[in-house]
Design a protein around this nucleic acid. Structure first.
Lengths: 188, 188
DNA sequence: TCGCTCATGTAAATAGTTACATGATTCC
DNA sequence: GGAATCATGTAACTATTTACATGAGCGA
């Protein structure tokens, strides 16, 4: 029982970024603070402990940057870290995953192509499409049943959720088309 | 310094439900477990402590259900609880609110009509529309700049976010139209 | 009587937030 | 020399998760 606690979303985000480029904690914080990944906290109280956890788990290693300038600790993936990242990305998508929020799924998707190849990306998209269309159907059913007993604002709030999922569904179709097109061009 | 910690989203969800109907902790858990509000946890370790916090803050009161059957504690809003709920719903919408996730906003919106009246609902929608169109514009700009340097999957992940916001924007227009129509019918 | 659901709660552990602390380095 | 930024970290606190505990009523 080596008490392996499960890897959090923030930790996976860090793994994905470190896969692209070994970086310091400060670099990573800046990425969260300035880019579209801003939904993650850039607070040192989140990042540094997360990096330490990853190191204790053996998923990353760090060493002091050689040479001049300020003291910086450059963190990079270990082999096990790369494996963990790949496995996380390729996890099958469940109904619950989607209901819990697209955030996790989108992060996996964003890393999928460089880390696990376009084949994994396409597979993710297909699974996502399946899950989404089931969910949209189910919610539309709920909506029809409850229409009469809910206040308009609550009705519309539910409709907002449905539309959100539906937009993601259309997006998934669009993304799949892009990848299909890419495949044809590549083999031509 | 009476150390008033700020009210969490779960607590606000509970307040909103209790506004509609005084209920037991178990009732509330069932709502989270079975309805479209399933994004909240139905675990007793979340709900019962939250109810207790609300009671210490003086936002709800509870009393044992009269009569027979199993022991049940029925919780209901106090006057201060109702005020707190209304104020939370009518908070002005900021850019950050929207970026942090539509979840909080949608909960406020869902409760808005019964708790604060259709006027508040319309105001919320207008503010939301403004914030969303600014965000969609900004993200499209980022997209154009970064298009060339991102892998396709990352590009598409960003596009997914944009489309999500855009869908909400269209939804807000749609919802506003519904309320306008309602207003005309009402005054006719 | 046996088991299931109802109903309320507690205990331990965890990630994340906020705020503070501390130096070194660069820029003016 | 002084201020701002770079860079790493710690400490206290909070809500939530997971798991356990307990007892009462209901149905077969």
């Amino acid at each position: 029982m080596t008490n392996v606690r499960k890897t959090t979303l923030l930790e996976h985000a860090l793994l994905g970024l470190l896969y692209q480029k070994p970086s310091s904690g400060y670099d990573l914080r800046k990425i969260f603070a300035t880019t579209a990944m801003g939904s993650f906290s850039d607070s040192p109280g989140a990042i540094y402990p997360a990096l330490r956890r990853l190191q204790t788990k053996g998923l990353v290693k760090s060493k002091a940057e050689a040479g001049s300038g300020r003291r910086r600790k450059i963190v990079s993936l270990t082999e096990r870290g790369t494996t963990e990242l790949q496995q996380w990305i390729m996890l099958p998508i469940t109904h619950e995953d989607v209901m819990a929020g697209l955030r996790d799924l989108m992060l996996r998707f964003a890393f999928s192509e460089p880390v696990a190849g376009p084949g994994a990306t396409v597979k993710l998209l297909q699974e996502l499409r399946g899950a989404l269309s089931a969910i949209v159907g189910g919610l539309r059913g709920q909506m029809d049943k409850l229409k009469s007993v809910m206040p308009l604002s609550a009705q519309l709030a539910l409709e907002s959720g449905i539309r959100g999922f539906d937009a993601q569904l259309q997006w998934a179709e669009y993304a799949l088309a892009k990848y299909e097109q890419l495949g044809k061009e590549g083999s031509a």
